[in-house]
């Protein structure tokens, strides 16, 4: 079956791509929302400017769509993007990285149902499995959102972070966001040479200034 993957650049959607490929699905394209709303419950926003670089490193086509990120409008925009993917890439299903958020899962399910394609959430309730897989990827912290995460973890590699009690590496509580530099199925890896940080009141993100795409 040809599928698209809802791709945010982070660890969960990257792992969803790996799962789909390992199971023999044809990942025909990635679909990424470029949202103007930093507080969207539906879409991840840090470092979305680099999702095309990741897609090139994976050698998978990407279909990006802009959205205001307003509730409901972002779902209509997602629906339009899926219709385009269905037409241009002949996808029959969408794979997502939803793990625990019924808000995300419900909306992905509804939009796929409206478009007439399958919806797959292979990470759903599978936090314990994801933890092991994260060790096999090169992942950095791209954003933090809320107490008690401090500025120093921004840009750190996920496997090197000692999280405070109550926060785990899966981060499904939304305490932090990630960006994947490399995974086993990437054809090339990404190296970040220089970045700035924006941080205030336990909320922050990195802004990448220089990066390279490196042969593996």
């Amino acid at each position: 079956m040809k599928v698209a993957v809802a791709f945010s650049g982070g660890k969960d959607s990257t792992y969803a791509i790996k799962l789909a490929k390992d199971m023999g699905y044809d990942v025909a394209c990635l679909i990424s929302a470029i949202s103007k709303n930093e507080h969207s419950y539906m879409f991840h926003t840090p470092l979305m400017s680099l999702v095309s670089v990741q897609a090139d490193a994976m050698e998978i086509p990407i279909l990006k769509f802009a959205t205001s990120g307003k509730k409901d409008v972002e779902l209509t925009d997602l629906k339009d993007a899926l219709k385009k993917a269905k037409k241009d890439f002949e996808i029959e299903g969408l794979v997502t990285g939803a793990i625990r958020s019924t808000y995300q899962a419900t909306n992905f399910e509804r939009v796929c149902d409206d478009v007439g394609i399958w919806c797959f959430n292979p990470l759903w309730l599978n936090e314990s499995v994801i933890d092991d897989e994260l060790k096999k990827m090169d992942i950095i912290i791209s954003a933090v959102a809320g107490y008690p995460l401090k500025e120093d973890i921004l840009g750190m590699h996920l496997n090197e972070v000692n999280f405070p009690e109550g926060i785990n590496k899966v981060g499904e509580g939304g305490e932090f966001e990630t960006f994947v530099l490399d995974a086993t199925f990437f054809k090339k890896r990404i190296a970040i040479d220089e970045f700035d940080k924006e941080y205030e009141n336990y909320n922050g993100r990195i802004i990448v200034k220089k990066f390279r795409v490196v042969e593996k």
Binding site: M1, V3, G24, W124, V129
Partner: peptide
């Protein structure tokens, strides 16, 4: 009928 669905609907029950 799809393996990706088994991850979502079967694996959590098995655990």
């Amino acid at each position: 009928s799809e393996r990706l669905s088994e991850k979502e609907f079967v694996d959590p029950l098995v655990r």
